[in-house]
Amino acid sequence: MQRDRILKVLPMKVRRLIEEEQLQFDYLQEIRLRTGKPLLIVYRGDELMAGPGRGRPYIVTKEDIREMMGYISNYSLYAYEQEMKQGFITIEGGHRVGMTGQAIIEDGKVKNIKYVSSVNLRIAHEVLGCADAVFPYVSCNRQLCHTLVISPPRCGKTTLLRDMIRQISDGNAWVRGMSVGVVDERSEIGGCYMGVAQNHLGMRTDVLDCCPKAEGMIMLIRSMSPEVLAVDEIGAAEDVHAVEYAMHCGCKMLASIHGASMEEIRKKPLLGRLVQEKRFERYIVLGSHLHPGQIEGIYDGRGSLLYEEQPAGQGV
């Protein structure tokens, strides 16, 4: 099913090349098309240059880009104007197609994108159970602790966040089932397609799709009374203020941020203050030294290490 959803939005020439590579789609992360440049694939964390053979890369054409834009928009780009002004379109299966080209500006804001020259198909992956290891350390008395996931790009923070939401919503051995409000600004957590989440987020989860994080958090608190609020990639001042507001309202926070370590987060002006004030009770730091999605450490609110993943055979 996932394989078919991915292949059907690719230009025919690119589709044939991908099929010839005989890739396992569970490990396919990105397919990048840039006009006049080689076709690039991110697979198992490595970058591959696809081509017809003998080391010759396939060079993407304007026609390839035009064909793909027709497939992903059902030949009606106008209908996707709201999504395109954010720089992406979410397709069936929750996969995100990012794009660049010439921005159309109206009243100082991006209204749309035309003359699309680059397309990046980011493959959404669900890894059910990938959050199993973290729950003994991020829960207390069957309640979630305020938790911040820290991760560099491509290290699995959204995948981890998604599975944590699912398990919190349904309940497991460590937390009771709780109502979860998700603000999915980039449609990456739920992967909503025509308003319906394509990913498994649990039976007590409400998703506010394509909504700015700060505004969405306030809306969910007022309208849906969530016990847990989940957001991806906080960082702006308004995001931090909304997180503090949610905590004061009694919501447990589950959030993520780009970063490589606790030390890096402490140096960020706004986030550093939250760390200093011990607003978050747990920090999960992800990396990729052993494998993508490696849990490099789980820390408490004081920064003390509670858990770190060991190489195979060494144990915890």
Rank of each mutant, 00 (worst) to 15 (best):
M1R: 08
M1W: 08
Q2F: 00
R3H: 12
L7C: 09
V9T: 11
P11Y: 04
K13S: 12
E19Q: 09
E19P: 03
L23S: 06
F25K: 08
Y27P: 01
L28I: 11
Q29S: 12
E30T: 10
L33R: 05
L33K: 01
R34E: 04
T35N: 14
K37P: 04
V42T: 13
L48T: 00
G51R: 02
G51L: 03
P52V: 05
R54F: 11
G55R: 06
G55P: 14
P57E: 09
D64A: 09
M68Y: 09
M68N: 05
M69E: 04
G70I: 08
Y78D: 13
A79L: 03
E81V: 06
M84L: 14
G87Q: 06
I91S: 04
G93W: 04
G94H: 03
M99R: 00
Q102Y: 15
E106S: 14
E106W: 11
D107L: 14
I113E: 02
R122A: 01
I123T: 01
C130R: 11
C130G: 08
D132I: 02
V134W: 00
Y137T: 13
S139E: 13
H146L: 01
H146R: 03
T147C: 13
T147F: 11
V149C: 14
V149G: 10
T158Q: 03
T159C: 07
L160Y: 08
L160K: 01
I168Q: 03
D170P: 00
A173F: 14
W174A: 10
G181N: 06
E188C: 14
G190V: 01
G191V: 03
C192I: 01
Q198V: 00
N199R: 05
G202I: 04
M203D: 14
M203E: 09
T205C: 15
D206W: 01
D206S: 07
K213F: 13
K213R: 09
M217Q: 06
M219A: 14
M224F: 03
V228L: 02
G235M: 02
A237H: 08
A237R: 11
E238F: 01
D239V: 05
A242H: 13
A242R: 07
E244Y: 03
Y245H: 15
A246D: 01
A246N: 06
M253D: 02
S256A: 07
H258L: 13
A260E: 14
M262E: 11
M262D: 07
L271C: 09
G272K: 04
L274D: 02
Q276R: 12
R279D: 08
R279W: 11
F280T: 00
E281L: 05
I284K: 04
H289F: 08
I295R: 02
I295D: 00
G297N: 07
Y299L: 04
S304V: 10
L305R: 04
L305K: 07
L305M: 10
Y307H: 06
A312S: 15
G315L: 08
